[in-house]
């Protein structure tokens, strides 16, 4: 009787282990399949030309996506230039004035904002920027990307600053320092590298977005730096090439997907590496 019961309990344990392990694998398998698939297909289509050449007309072999790589970099920088100052300031407000009524409402809005589908953000930027200016533009794309980045930057900044213990703020205030100086030179000063992590995460998320750029920055086939002109980007270029009927273009799309994925994964890993180092230092898990 006793033995039976013990066996039964052991069996339950093993069942549970198999179940959890199975679910974990079920999550990992698609991830590795995607990475492997893109790697095999993309790496075989990749050449140096991909980084240094512009697209060739249909039918001609070769060419690259130099313009789209540069475009993505420009759009992401533009988006970050808008989102970082606003987002970090907003995060400071949420953390340092958390008692205020506005703070509580703002927090809810930020949560809602991060749930907005990116295609809707694209449409919004289209209506607000493209329609009045009567042209697809890098500016519209940058604004759309900044709206993607904002909630991520706000949330991470808020959480990072909330980890700074209150007694540090009290120490600063007790020295007779005005609150804004305590926030900037005592609270924020030690957290700059941590804030950077949140910014990198936001940028890597925005760099891979297609939907917000489809009808804002739109895309083109040459290098252009004009804010009021359409600008190419890797995700849109990949999309355009992937749905084309031409074999050559489809191969280019794979190469583009591979480059984009490596770019985003490495940014993510870098950010996470900094984060774990910070957490080790602070002794939080």
């Amino acid at each position: 009787m006793k033995l039976n019961y013990r066996l039964y309990r052991k069996a339950k344990n093993i069942m549970f282990l198999i179940l959890t392990l199975g679910s974990a694998l079920a999550v990992l398998i698609p991830l590795f399949m995607i990475i492997q698939f893109v790697m095999v297909q993309g790496a075989s289509s990749l050449s140096l030309d991909f980084f240094t050449e512009l697209p060739k007309p249909v039918g001609e072999i070769g060419g690259g996506m130099k313009h789209a790589i540069l475009g993505t970099i420009c759009l992401v920088i533009l988006g970050a230039a808008i989102a970082v100052p606003i987002g970090v300031t907003c995060g400071i407000y949420l953390s340092e004035f958390r008692k205020s009524r506005l703070s509580k409402n703002l927090k809810l809005s930020v949560d809602l904002m991060s749930g907005i589908p990116s295609i809707v953000i694209g449409i919004f930027a289209y209506l607000m920027v493209v329609v009045p200016l009567k042209s697809f533009s890098a500016l519209a794309g940058g604004i759309a990307l900044s709206i993607i980045m904002l909630p991520i930057i706000i949330k991470t900044s808020e959480e990072i600053l909330k980890l700074v213990p209150d007694h540090i703020r009290e120490a600063g205030l007790a020295l007779g320092l005005p609150r804004w100086k305590v926030i900037l030179f005592v609270v924020l000063k030690g957290e700059i590298s941590n804030l950077l992590t949140g910014i990198i995460l936001a940028i890597s998320r925005a760099a891979g977005e297609t939907a917000p750029l489809l009808f804002t920055a739109f895309g083109n086939m040459y290098i252009s730096y004009g804010l009021n002109q359409p600008m190419a980007s890797l995700p849109v270029q990949i999309y355009t090439y992937a749905i084309s009927p031409y074999k050559e273009w489809q191969k280019q799309a794979w190469a583009g997907a591979f480059v984009l994925m490596v770019l985003i994964l490495s940014m993510n890993l870098f950010a996470r590496y900094i984060l774990t180092k910070i957490k080790d230092k602070k002794g939080i898990s």
């Binding site: 540090i168 007779g176 030690g190």
Partner: peptide, 26 residues
Amino acid sequence: RRRIGMVFQKPNPFPSMSILDNVVIG
């Protein structure tokens, strides 16, 4: 607070600041 200074019950030096900076930051 500038005229009434305070030493807290729990030591609370500013993290990420050197010993020197801690003393002269005020």
